[in-house]
Structures are given as C-alpha cells and as structure tokens.
Simulated scan of single mutants.
Amino acid sequence: MNNTHSKAVGYVLWIFGFMGAHRFYYGRPVSATIYFFTLGLFLIGWIVDLFLIPSMDRDADRQYQAGTTSYTLAWVLLTFLGIFGLHRFYMGKWISGIVYLLTGGVFLLGIIYDYWTLNQQINEQNTTLFSR
C-alpha cells in the first residue's frame, strides 16, 4: 500500500483544522474551504475530524501515487514558505517557482490554487515518473 500522507502531520495540521489545513492536506479542498469560512463547521466538524483523520489518511494513501516527490514535504513547504515558491522549486517547476518568488506567490492567488491542487500536481508527477 502507498504511504503518501502522514497521520502525524495530519494531526499537527488538525490543530489548525478549524481553518481546513488537514482537509487540504488529505485532498479534500471543497470541505477544507467550507471549514475555512465556517471555522471548522463552527468547531463541531473540527472536533469530529479528530476521529476521522485515520480514515482520511487511508483514503489519501489509496487515491494518490507514492513516488520521488513527497506529499508531506511539498505541503510543509507550501504551508510555511509557499509565498517564496519553495514547494514549486522542490517539485522541479523552476519557472513558476521563480514567478512565485518574484510576485509573492502570484499575489497569493497562486497559493490558493496550489492549496486546491497540490495533491493532484504531485500525483501527476509521481505517476509520470513511475511510468517511465
């Protein structure tokens, strides 16, 4: 079985989960956005998620392809240094990394885009590398 995501990281992000961080990490951008705007469904969903993280981790492991690019490292780079484009440099996307570096993550809109699509971007990269 793939081990693409980390439960430990999921629980750390859960601390900030009322803003949807752990849900973005596990590839659930719609519910993560809802959590962001409702403070984790008024904190009720956030508390319930404490018990749902193991199943979200299993689902992410089934859905995404493991490979040379680490989902966890890319997410840490996006979360803490995304405005500088370090997650894009890590994935080998040098041109967009430079653009992010010079424009503050394309004025933060690129950061939002990456929160929605980072798992898919890495999955494509790992699948492409895996099939070579």
Rank of each mutant, 00 (worst) to 15 (best):
residue 74 A to N: 03
residue 13 L to I: 04
residue 50 L to A: 15
residue 15 I to C: 13
residue 60 A to C: 03
residue 51 F to V: 05
residue 46 W to E: 03
residue 72 T to Q: 05
residue 81 L to Q: 09
residue 59 D to L: 01
residue 91 M to E: 11
residue 50 L to H: 05
residue 114 D to N: 11
residue 90 Y to G: 05
residue 8 A to Q: 12
residue 119 N to Q: 00
residue 36 F to A: 09
residue 125 Q to T: 14
residue 32 A to L: 01
residue 19 M to H: 07
residue 11 Y to A: 06
residue 10 G to F: 05
residue 72 T to I: 03
residue 88 R to K: 14
residue 42 F to N: 05
residue 75 W to G: 03
residue 6 S to I: 05
residue 26 Y to V: 09
residue 18 F to A: 07
residue 24 F to Q: 00
residue 69 T to N: 06
residue 83 I to P: 13
residue 58 R to W: 03
residue 83 I to T: 15
residue 127 T to S: 13
residue 26 Y to F: 13
residue 63 Q to H: 09
residue 123 N to V: 02
residue 125 Q to N: 14
residue 42 F to M: 10
residue 102 L to D: 10
residue 5 H to P: 05
residue 32 A to V: 04
residue 9 V to W: 07
residue 1 M to E: 13
residue 131 S to A: 13
residue 39 L to H: 00
residue 94 W to C: 12
residue 91 M to Y: 11
residue 84 F to A: 15
residue 119 N to L: 01
residue 15 I to H: 10
residue 112 I to P: 04
residue 122 I to Q: 01
residue 49 D to N: 07
residue 102 L to N: 11
residue 45 G to I: 04
residue 71 Y to F: 15
residue 100 Y to G: 04
residue 68 T to R: 04
residue 60 A to R: 05
residue 113 Y to V: 05
residue 3 N to D: 13
residue 115 Y to L: 15
residue 108 L to R: 05
residue 128 T to P: 07
residue 108 L to W: 11
residue 129 L to Q: 14
residue 10 G to E: 00
residue 100 Y to K: 02
residue 131 S to T: 13
residue 116 W to I: 15
residue 85 G to W: 01
residue 75 W to A: 04
residue 93 K to M: 09
residue 56 M to C: 08
residue 124 E to R: 15
residue 127 T to W: 07
residue 93 K to P: 06
residue 60 A to N: 02
residue 123 N to L: 03
residue 9 V to I: 15
residue 130 F to E: 14
residue 118 L to Q: 02
residue 74 A to S: 03
residue 28 R to F: 12
residue 3 N to T: 12
residue 61 D to C: 09
residue 67 G to A: 01
residue 9 V to R: 08
residue 12 V to F: 14
residue 83 I to W: 14
residue 15 I to P: 11
residue 24 F to G: 00
residue 22 H to W: 07
residue 91 M to W: 00
residue 40 G to R: 09
residue 56 M to I: 09
residue 97 G to Q: 00
residue 64 Y to V: 00
residue 46 W to A: 08
residue 52 L to I: 07
residue 36 F to P: 04
residue 60 A to Y: 09
residue 35 Y to M: 08
residue 118 L to G: 04
residue 56 M to D: 09
residue 117 T to E: 09
residue 107 F to D: 00
residue 12 V to E: 06
residue 115 Y to A: 13
residue 113 Y to N: 12
residue 19 M to N: 02
residue 108 L to H: 03
residue 118 L to W: 02
residue 19 M to W: 12
residue 94 W to V: 15
residue 9 V to D: 04
residue 25 Y to T: 03
residue 47 I to F: 13
residue 121 Q to C: 13
residue 2 N to L: 10
residue 120 Q to K: 13
residue 12 V to K: 11
residue 50 L to I: 12
residue 34 I to K: 08
residue 105 G to C: 10
residue 103 T to S: 12
residue 121 Q to M: 15
residue 119 N to H: 10
residue 53 I to Y: 06
residue 111 I to N: 05
residue 90 Y to V: 05
residue 49 D to H: 05
residue 39 L to I: 06
residue 99 V to R: 09
residue 48 V to W: 09
residue 31 S to H: 05
residue 95 I to R: 08
residue 12 V to C: 11
residue 64 Y to W: 12
